[in-house]
């Protein structure tokens, strides 16, 4: 297994408050890594550092090294926008562009990248929607507004939008927390399928979800990574008592 992304000595702040402390973590290609931890533990901030989204927040900063296939995404002269094309992100609430159709929501990233040829766009949109397991449901309403879809469909539309630009890593920040169990199950199935094509890092509050779909799990607490390992081990025999207390719901 080779690491597609290697994080070392990553620290992140909001103003004077340190949210992420000295994280060292590697992501192997074509795996799903779950990041778990209580609210405010720094897990979302951590993954937002992985595609340089964290620095968009006023007063926020991050230091450390994040190597994507050997190149530091925080290197001098690196364009954050180019990074975000390689490292896609899906958020908690589905956020399709309200004024765009289903088709245009998926095509937007490619168009921004300068792609104009209709036949290629059409092909890429179909491929992305198929990958996100939405094609069959929307192929007859590609011109309908993205926001006319159900919540679960909108989330899969956002996944298709992220996949259209063929990222090597997909970051997911609680992608199913706003969805019903059926839509959640579809996204979980999708994640397991998608890891054949991309490497996935997912923040989740749902222990069972992390247990079901991830290969590796990292437990964060107060900005520190307390424990990291095979998901099957973390959920059956965690080494750290804080991990144990958290996943069995004993914190507090």
């Amino acid at each position: 297994m080779s690491a597609i992304m290697e994080v070392s000595g990553l620290n992140a702040w909001f103003g004077a408050a340190q949210a992420v402390k000295e994280i060292n973590l590697s992501f192997e290609k074509n795996t799903v890594t779950a990041i778990i931890g209580p609210s405010g533990c720094g897990k979302s901030t951590f993954i937002r550092c992985l595609n340089r989204l964290h620095e968009e927040v006023p007063d926020a900063r991050a230091i450390g090294r994040v190597l994507l296939e050997g190149d530091d995404i925080y290197g001098r002269g690196v364009d954050p926008v180019a990074i975000r094309r390689k490292i896609g992100m899906v958020f908690q609430k589905p956020n399709p562009f309200p004024s765009l159709s289903v088709f245009d929501n998926v095509a937007v990233g490619l168009r921004l990248g300068g792609l104009r040829r209709a036949s290629i766009l059409k092909e890429a949109v179909e491929r992305s929607l198929t990958l996100s397991a939405l094609w069959d449901e929307v192929k007859d309403k590609l011109n309908a507004p993205g926001t006319s879809l159900s919540g679960g469909q909108q989330q899969r539309l956002c996944i298709a939008r992220a996949l259209a630009v063929e990222p090597s890593i997909l970051l997911m920040d609680e992608p199913t927390s706003a969805l019903d169990p059926i839509s959640t199950a579809k996204i979980e199935e999708l994640v397991t399928e998608l890891k054949k094509a991309v490497t996935i890092v997912m923040v989740t509050h749902n222990m069972q979800q992390a247990a079901r779909i991830s290969d590796k799990t990292a437990f964060f607490l107060l900005g520190d990574m307390v424990e990291y390992g095979e998901t099957s081990r973390i959920f059956t025999a965690p080494k750290d008592s804080r991990t144990e207390r958290y996943i069995t719901g004993r914190f507090g």
Binding site: M207, A211, F235, T236, A237, E244, I247, T248
Partner: peptide
């Protein structure tokens, strides 16, 4: 309860 860790064991 879908127990985990020590509870599951």
């Amino acid at each position: 309860q879908q127990p985990l860790a020590a509870d599951l064991r």
